[in-house]
Design a protein around this nucleic acid. Structure first.
Lengths: 252, 252
DNA sequence: GGAATAGTGTCTTTCAGACACTATCTG
DNA sequence: CAGATAGTGTCTGAAAGACACTATTCC
């Protein structure tokens, strides 16, 4: 904050836009059932893929801007369950040739089902395996610095998907452990071990219950039916307690 | 980004300030040698403690603003080693009674020695044990929403200090394992086990070497001299690889 | 020697990783 | 029945956690 009593108009103000990296799962091209991670882009008049974005409105929060952006550019209404995550403020003064324009990068994930409701102009680009910094994360070069936004979003997303079941909401509960694992494999870009994954995730999940109080399973699938799970309301244990905090009284 | 060809002036623009949560270690009040974490505040004309902050300048990046801010308000020149971390954009339209003012929160840590070089107006407030969301993180209420900024900074800092040695630079290398542990205890607000801590940190450290090629130790202290260490240039292993990526070819 | 701090050997417990076995569906 | 997918028991090895022992200084 600034203690100066001068009028706020005296300070220079950047234009501020919001750019949204909206992820969902894509069926694999090779015909096998493994999912891939995809990001929604819109094509500009010159055909360059671009993240949906817009300028902020007067006295509007960034989250409000994101929600309006989704309605206006993607013809879809975000629900309260969307977990919007701020990535960074992209403030290179030369990032936009039109002038001094900052972009606040946001990331969100939606289910395949919800993604089908987006405007037909919304296109899904598959995320490439290694979203390293400085690398293109999709097959096409995005406009502006949107490649940076996507690769940062993917990097953070991968961190979250290492610890907890579907933290961003790529799936709609209830889901099977296999569906959950495929989603995590799509985010991480690497195969996971079924047994270890199941055991690790179990503590964060609880069996989905039908209205009649029965545990729920898939049906009409090939193979043994899989049990359906939903995320637990409260986590069983702390997500991370890596250091040895003493268990009882004595402190050395 | 916005594809509109309209003049950028047509869009409303918020005032944008930067607020800095600058942390350092404080000697404990109780006279024992345990450190506490402290945050630098300045007192306004009404005596309310406030994080150092200022408006951004024309076509300036936020990091540049932070560095100028430190020079102007704290009479100190940041070095290249400072690890500035963006916390969040605080964009509640009512957070500043003067108008529509966003604040970009930043966090940084400096050594005690460097903190002594700050302007005498800089005051250090001790961080309280539990910096939970919605709680005051210091003994005094800070102005504006600066309590939120500090508590978010502390929460993120604690996460980082669970994994790696002094990731934010509270200490100046070389340091002993005890000094490192005390710093971590100050950040985490809880005592740590000496043996486990030492073993966990060793892989990220290498012995400090004198110019004559000898390992360095403390001297003139009570008790056995402690070896001095510096952070390794490159991390030995990946910071986190929590999921079972298959070791060899076969993928199930 | 005694007090104080540094550093580590070692035992136990816990958990990841790997493999394979059992379970239950479709056709 | 074969084929396919789901779920788990169990063994092994590695690492965390806990305790206590040794090491080296100052007084």
């Amino acid at each position: 904050m600034v203690p100066s009593p001068a009028a706020l108009d005296a300070y220079p103000r950047p234009n501020v836009a919001v750019d949204l990296a909206l992820f969902t799962l894509l069926p694999s091209a090779e015909g096998n059932h493994h999912d891939r991670l995809g990001v929604v882009v819109l094509r500009g008049s010159d055909g360059t893929p671009t993240l949906p974005g817009r300028m902020v409105r007067e006295r509007e929060t960034i989250r409000e801007t994101v929600k309006e952006l989704v309605q206006e550019k993607l013809s879809h209404r975000p629900t309260a369950r969307w977990t919007l995550r701020m990535l960074d403020v992209f403030d290179d003064p030369d990032r936009d040739p039109r002038g001094w324009v900052w972009s606040v990068g946001y990331s969100v994930a939606i289910s395949r089902h919800e993604a089908d409701l987006l405007t037909p102009q919304a296109e899904l680009l598959a995320i490439r395996g290694s979203a390293a910094r400085g690398t293109r994360s999709t097959s096409e070069k995005l406009s502006y610095d949107h490649d940076d936004i996507v690769s940062m979003a993917v990097r953070r997303m991968r961190r979250r998907y290492e610890k907890a079941p579907d933290p961003d909401g790529l799936l709609k509960a209830p889901y099977t452990l296999s569906q959950l694992r495929h989603a995590h494999e799509a985010v991480l870009g690497a195969p996971l071990k079924r047994d270890t994954f199941n055991r690790r995730m179990r503590e964060f999940l609880e069996p989905a219950m039908s209205r009649s109080g029965e545990e729920m399973f898939t049906s009409e699938t090939v193979g043994r039916p899989a049990q359906l799970f939903t995320p637990r309301r409260v986590a069983v244990r702390e997500v991370s307690e890596p250091f040895p905090l003493p268990r009882s009284g004595s402190v050395t």
